[in-house]
Simulated scan of single mutants.
Amino acid sequence: MPRSRKVLLLVDFINPLSFDGAELIAQAAVEAARSAARLKKQFHQDGACVIYVNDNFGQWRSDVRTLLRECKRAGGAAAELARLLAPSKTDLMILKPRHSGFYATPLDLLLEQLAAKDLVITGLATDYCVKCTAMDAYVRGYRVAVPADCTAAESDQRKQGALMWMKEVLKARIAPSR
Rank of each mutant, 00 (worst) to 15 (best):
V146C: 09
A175L: 13
Q42T: 14
T122P: 06
L24K: 13
P106F: 10
M135V: 07
S100T: 01
L17C: 09
I25C: 05
L163A: 06
V130H: 07
S18D: 15
L85V: 02
Y142A: 04
I121E: 10
A134F: 01
F19K: 06
D136P: 06
T126L: 06
T126R: 04
Y52F: 14
V144W: 02
L84G: 02
A148C: 14
G123Q: 06
P147N: 12
E154R: 13
C49M: 13
D136C: 03
A116R: 08
P106H: 12
Q160L: 12
A125K: 10
K117H: 12
K96Y: 09
E31T: 09
W165M: 12
V130M: 05
E168D: 14
L110V: 15
R173I: 15
Q113D: 13
L85S: 05
A116V: 02
G141M: 07
N56F: 10
E70Y: 14
L163P: 08
A32L: 07
D55M: 04
L68W: 07
A153D: 08
K6N: 11
A79H: 08
V50M: 10
Y52I: 09
K167S: 10
V120C: 05
L67I: 12
A152Q: 06
A153G: 10
A125R: 11
A145P: 04
Y128P: 01
V50L: 00
K41F: 12
L114P: 03
I121C: 06
V120K: 11
H99R: 14
A26R: 04
